[in-house]
Design a binder for these strands. Structure first.
Lengths: 406, 406
DNA sequence: TAGGGTTTATTTAGTCCTGAACAAAGGACG
DNA sequence: CGTCCTTTGTTCAGGACTAAATAAACCCTA
């Protein structure tokens, strides 16, 4: 049974890099406060990172009334990572620096249903990598819309992609000779959020994504909630309507089958709001232009989402809900139905629940995947199996020649 | 933000006592395997427990082909604990031994709405304690149907009891001069389940209770999921019916307002299945006797529960759902609607989800509360605040005189 | 009877973290 | 100028745990 010290994701070292990358140089004391660890530990961690050539001591900062802080900054050349988003009809790539910032991105057509999909993917990926920077490449993170048996191995099941037990991790590792980390795309996003976004400030938060699908990932006491079989957060398949529309999962009336992008577009077509050839872009334009039938579609979706989310909040009790995904482009319209439905369905004591909608960029999914690579080397439990060790090795091996000013 | 090593509930030492209590004497190697820790740690932990006089080495057990195991057994006189269940119209008490077994129990009428409720409770409690055994009393665990701000302090909000910010913990501590641990009743039950029940075998499970209310508690990676404000597991207030019946929480259409005991009885009366004066017992008798209208009521409730639970399972992904509560007495009737609704609403890959219905006893709630006391002294993070330390002190203080055969 | 295999238990070294004490480096104020 | 205060950073002891090596105790077989 293992009453073990609860999955500790020891994201600490990585969080240091992430924080410095996102917020610029900071002192050890600041880092300790922000990351919620003891100053003693921060001394230790930064010592390691400096020795590994990932961090440098900068100038003193002006004193705040006490001893002035010695600022720490990233060594930008210490490493980089590739992030990949796999969708049914395309793949997106990003290259990020050690601080998590996007250096380069690309998107390519891709047919997930093709029999040659794995070689296709590895070819596209190799091509993208070949144009990369000169800092050591630490590894590749892959985000997929589906469940991954174990982060390390990378066996993927995905209804959206039509994949069953696809060994994407093993294949890419063999083809590219690089560490490869495969993870559910929403989980990857939550990791990025934890490292670079609003999640830095919260120990208990929920990432909610709306777009093609509807997904979620929960961070509980600072650690990602993966569930027994890595399948937590599948809120798109909460049953919400009896005898509702058919979902990709095979059931009827799943949330995603009603408010996923495909469902909204279908509804809009059925109601004649957009043409049979038009898609989400047209629906959004109509709503933006004030078309009441169009805004009603988003409002209804928002209502259903809000009501369902209230139930989820009662189950997990997060401090904040962070909304992400392509769908947030229309959030103003969703919000119209979402806010009242959520608040009124929450228990009175929870009505103050914080909901944040973050700006969404095309490469966000891929960036989330890349953050897996940057987070992994410092994962004390080997959630990522061997891959964590491999990334770690690449990091110190290639960085130490410069550093080591003993 | 604290990316801390995730709330570790270090239930280990307590789990040793619990396992020995529930399953009889065992070897260190067995314990290490069952509890999922290293043999090295088990050596260390048992050494402490033996030094504290809580464990003794027994005879060797016959060899299994290798070195024979030295069995360890509990020292039954090392301590006892009191568990209290608080309901709107009564309180239930149990006294348990250090192994968690019930030694004694009682139930008393109690009016939670009375202005004198706190002194009433402390009087009843004192009376129960006075009849107790001679082993040192380690503390009192109190389970309440509501949310507790922090386990340690014991400020209770409960719609069911009509309590708002009632300082039950502080009051009882002062009146009884004993460690007092207050916790949500379902969480307490989950702790008992983790220590003594099916939960021993699972790191990710859900406890589902049906009865007066509908509640849940999740154990994730071996640790109890408490949520940001200690309010996770409130599945009774998931909105399931638009403009449904009024719930005690003030909203309409909550799950609990439809399938809670009061709701079922009301439905039965409205449909003329039972008389206006009759209650749940009559409804159950009718169903047991084969009354189709009665079984239909349970079947409908089961259906709604199953469908809602499917959504919850998609969110949290437990390995097993353990059903408890007074309502399980009618489970055969619930099951009729529950099973098909649950299975059909689950994603195909989750259809195999295990659901276990455990036998329910009147004192189970109180026993759960008592297990909090037994689990607390070994909680390394002080989830229970001072109370953990206090219980720990009482334990070693009173036990060491006998032990210490250095 | 010696040796090999098995299982149990302990020791040792090491990781990751904390809390407490302390040192270091400034400002403010007499 | 010296003293007090504040903040930063480090060191040290220690807790909780693990992995690996080792010892201890038994079985079986040659």
């Amino acid at each position: 049974m293992a009453i073990r010290p609860a999955a500790r994701t020891d994201v600490n070292r990585s969080a240091i890099l992430a924080h410095l990358g996102a917020s610029g140089p900071a002192s050890r004391a600041d880092l300790a406060r922000v990351l919620g660890v003891s100053p003693a530990l921060m001394t230790q961690l930064t010592k390691d990172l400096i020795a590994d050539g990932l961090l440098v001591e900068l100038e003193h900062s002006p004193s705040q009334g006490g001893r002035p802080a010695r600022m720490l900054g990233l060594v930008a050349t210490a490493g980089r990572a590739i992030g990949v988003k796999v969708a049914a009809d395309h793949v997106a790539f990003v290259e990020v620096g050690i601080a998590g910032a996007v250096l380069r991105s690309a998107s390519e057509p891709f047919d997930a249903a093709a029999s040659t999909m794995l070689t296709d993917l590895s070819l596209l990926l190799r091509r993208f990598i070949s144009g990369g920077g000169k800092a050591p490449l630490l590894g590749v993170g892959v985000g997929v819309p589906g469940s991954v048996d174990q982060q390390g191995s990378g066996l993927v099941d995905s209804a959206q992609l039509g994949w069953s037990q696809v060994p994407i991790g093993a294949t890419l590792r063999r083809e590219l000779d690089l560490p490869v980390i495969v993870e559910n795309n929403v989980n990857a996003l939550a990791m990025a959020e934890r490292l670079y976004g609003l999640g830095r400030q919260y120990d208990n938060f929920m990432v909610l994504t709306i777009g093609t699908g509807v997904g979620a990932c929960f961070v509980v006491d600072g650690a990602m909630l993966r569930g027994h079989s890595g399948g937590s957060g599948e809120i798109g398949h909460i049953p919400v309507e009896i005898d509702g529309p058919l979902c990709t999962c095979g059931n009827h009336g799943c949330l995603e089958a009603i408010i996923g992008e495909a469902a909204l577009v279908r509804t809009a077509r059925d109601r004649g709001v957009i043409g049979e050839e038009s898609g989400m872009a047209a629906l959004r334009r109509a709503a933006d232009a004030g078309d009441e039938a169009a805004t009603a579609i988003f409002g209804e979706a928002g209502h259903l989402l809000g009501r369902t989310l209230a139930g989820i909040v009662h189950v997990v009790d997060p401090e904040i809900v962070i909304v992400l995904g392509e769908g947030t482009a229309s959030w103003a319209h969703w919000s119209y139905g979402f806010e009242p439905a959520l608040r009124s369905a929450l228990m009175p004591s929870r009505r103050g629940l914080a909901v944040a909608v973050e700006t969404w960029q095309d490469e966000s999914w891929a960036q989330g995947a890349a953050s897996l690579v940057l987070a992994t080397p410092f994962d004390s439990e080997d959630v990522a199996g061997d891959q964590g060790r491999l990334v770690r090795e690449r990091l110190v091996e290639q960085a130490s020649p410069q550093g080591d000013n003993g």
